[in-house]
């Protein structure tokens, strides 16, 4: 069975090397400050205490007043997993985050997907293009304030 890192203990362990980086934590998750995410990810991968070598999933959630980028990571050697979260774009302004492609190659397409559907810019991504939609597509569809085609017709009819 995969050991899931307790968020609190992971935060304590991480705070040893990067004392300012941790924003908050609960039983399962650790919230990392956006500007420290790259540093934290390198620690998580390279520090033998963690050894997280596999990035399972990278995604984002739109919480209306900010975006949250979620990293699910696993250590194959230790058979352990953890969840790291970051809040970006407070007040929906300027969502920018450092890219973790240099830490985990697997973040390549997933970051492009998040940029495509949420509009979160990943700085340092080697090929920062939209993944599914074409260049010039208006808006980012998975944002909560995105108006779909159906919704736009309904609002026109209502005047």
């Amino acid at each position: 069975m995969t050991d899931e890192w307790n968020g609190n203990s992971l935060a304590t362990a991480l705070a040893g090397e990067n004392p300012d980086a941790i924003e908050s934590c609960n039983r399962t998750d650790v919230w990392v400050k956006g500007e420290h995410i790259l540093q934290i990810c390198f620690t998580l991968r390279d520090n033998p205490e963690f050894g997280f070598d596999l990035l399972n999933s990278l995604t984002a959630v739109d919480y209306l007043d900010y975006f949250e980028v979620v990293y699910h990571i696993t250590s194959l050697k230790k058979n352990a997993s953890a969840v790291i979260k970051t809040k970006v774009g407070q007040g929906r302004n300027n969502p920018v985050l450092a890219s973790v492609v240099n830490v985990w190659r697997g973040a390549d397409y997933q970051e492009r997907e998040v940029w495509d559907l949420f509009g979160i810019t990943f700085e340092g991504h080697p090929n920062h293009k939209r993944l599914f939609l074409w260049e010039g597509y208006p808006g980012h569809p998975l944002r909560k304030d995105y108006i779909t085609y159906d919704q736009s017709i309904n609002s026109e009819e209502r005047g």
């Binding site: 999933s57 995604t59 697997g106």
Partner: peptide, 30 residues
């Protein structure tokens, strides 16, 4: 490969966010 679903609930009847960790897409990385 690893097929994962990440669900976020806000207490309503529909998922607030449903993300698929699609192995086909991620296996294409290399």
């Amino acid at each position: 490969g690893e097929l994962g679903f990440y669900l976020v609930s806000d207490g309503s009847i529909a998922p607030y966010r449903c993300h698929v960790r699609a192995p086909s897409l991620i296996n294409l990385t290399l």
